[in-house]
Design a protein around this nucleic acid. Structure first.
Lengths: 343, 343
DNA sequence: TTGTAAGCGTTATCAA
DNA sequence: TTGATAACGCTTACAA
């Protein structure tokens, strides 16, 4: 059935005009007379002609493709697994997509395995823009910087990030708000649960906010109040055992909702009560935080917005034809649901 | 900084050979002498040359791109929203990705807005394969069939689907197992909660299983036991009001986990107990079913596997250079957690 | 207003 | 074993 796909030349021939005229009409370049246009449109119709994006891209030197790269933290992680393990990424992508699709761009998702591999991918696909979520080794940016393509970094505090667009949330403030809330409820021994704090300034800044709030209240955070694990449900679930056994905190601020949910599950499963036995504040406000019982009290960042803004920055650069570097800082907000209560 | 990207011609010149030789060596076509190869590799290294995928695709007539299309059920839905609203899709994509990436393919996600728009997209991007999730209007397949590209349909019972690869789960059996479980727990008035049953044979088949189990137990399903709503958390949450008010079922089988979670939330929020006041069985076994309390009893389908198999079918056809049509039917299994109990 | 033809960066055919 | 060169399907000077 597969009748050979019609090309621009077929259209030109059928309409009895040159390929240039066809190209012009298709691209809205006003050089073609109405009658010719008419004929061309008819030919296009009859042949069911669709311009080849591949050819257009080769000719124009772009790709109509935006890459989103997710941080591959563990050896052996694949981007799909992140998508699977933390709803944060799906929501972010959703935000990006809502603006790129309108502009006629498709989205490609990738992890960063090795620097080599990544910049290869970007160059070979001739991506029109890339959005990087999370932190990466510095060397990757050296590599990337040499490629002439718009770049947005989200949640990247490292100083070299100032060469690129950045979108982030006030993490320190978020941490501060979370702990302030707990403090107001009368908690004093408050834990901090996080992913690696060494590799992530995001986690570190949330920690700073935590620490600041505590110090302001005249409390010195103790070493045993600090818990570090993978940023997954399972990570939270695992560390909850420690928390429960040590029994030295009455509340925890958790750097990611998905971990917070793991912690709550562990406590609930063992007959404990949340917030009765422990108050939990998360960070992110991923959707499922509202799905569960108790509803998760959390520091909300507008994830969808983060995606949208990132995409818009890329679109702006594409329009301009050069890289710029704006910053967009979102404000976090405290969403009080049911996982926290007075001591 | 952006030094002009090196092309195959630059490499050829630098190595003092023809472009053909470069292409041959790169593609492992054994026509080139070791010494020439040596020189070519050195030149590639020095110029940091990366072949352009766009050019390769134009020349070879493919794209190294696999499209995944999600069902746009509501007017105004965008694929991103689906990703956001039902984790099922994210998990499925994760499965697909794990096999395609190894084969050097990237994934493009799309919705199907209009038939026109969709086939345009497929043709213009020259996708090497497409995986369609869920049900679509018949006309789309007429359209798609004329494009010469491998296609996998997941969860499509419609008879025209037999022209394509299919992967599905035994939905009727799943429904049967769910209700059987409830019956064994002593429930008799058992509801069925579902998305549209008219547009989805999946939902219909799950209903058949429901009905069959009931009839076998000598029970005739009543009209008021049937609840239809959007397949989202909010849909479940909304319909739960009806269920609670009517009070004529002691248990429900819900055609999708995400809805089941909405129902449970509604009950719990109003001081009811699950499974005490109502037993709930879902379908899918999305991850978050285990995150919540009570853990969701559900009919498990291996979503990741579904994605993997779909991808493998596409890869097979690509290898063969033609469309074939296999079927892969997964078996569902009952996962008993804590949302069901004896009456 | 229309047409010709030279790219864009590969692959692959055909000679040499 | 190598090298020209014509595709692939489009855009866009440049000419007419």
């Amino acid at each position: 059935m597969a009748e050979k796909k019609a090309t621009i030349r077929d259209v030109a021939k059928k309409a009895g005009v040159s390929v240039a005229s066809v190209s012009y009409t298709l691209n809205g370049i006003d050089k073609v007379s109405p009658e010719t246009k008419e004929r061309i449109f008819r030919a296009i119709e009859e042949l069911n002609y669709k311009p080849s994006l591949t050819a257009q891209c080769l000719s124009k030197g772009d790709s109509k493709l935006i890459g989103i790269s997710l941080p591959i933290t563990e050896k052996g992680d694949i981007p799909g697994m992140l998508l699977e393990n933390n709803p944060f990424f799906g929501e972010f992508i959703s935000g990006v997509e809502s603006v790129t699709r309108k502009a006629g761009y498709d989205i490609l998702i990738s992890g960063v395995e090795t620097n080599e591999h990544y910049s290869d991918w970007v160059m070979r696909r001739k991506l029109d823009g890339i959005i990087m979520v999370g932190a990466y080794p510095k060397s990757i940016f050296e590599e990337i910087k040499t490629i002439d393509v718009p770049i947005v970094l989200t949640d990247t505090y490292e100083d070299y990030a100032s060469d690129f667009h950045r979108v982030m949330v006030e993490d320190e403030k978020g941490g501060y708000m979370a702990v302030k809330h707990l403090l107001e409820l009368g908690h004093r021994r408050i834990g901090y649960v996080t992913g690696s704090i060494d590799n992530s300034l995001v986690n570190y800044n949330r920690y700073s906010g935590y620490r600041k709030a505590l110090l302001e209240a005249g409390i010195t955070p103790e070493r045993e109040w600090f818990f570090e694990e993978h940023v997954t449900f399972d990570g939270g679930y695992a560390i909850a055992k420690d928390i429960m056994e040590k029994q030295n905190v009455t509340a925890v601020f958790v750097a990611a909702d998905i971990m917070a949910i793991g912690i709550i599950k562990y406590f609930l499963e063992r007959g404990k009560n949340v917030p009765g036995d422990i108050s939990v504040v998360g960070f992110d406000d991923i959707k499922i935080g509202q799905y569960m019982m108790p509803g998760l009290t959390t520091i909300r960042q507008d994830i969808i917005m983060k995606g949208r803004v990132s995409a818009e920055m890329i679109m702006k650069d594409i329009g301009l034809g050069r890289r710029t570097n704006d910053s967009f800082i979102l404000s976090p907000s405290l969403v009080i649901r049911d996982s926290t209560s007075a001591l």
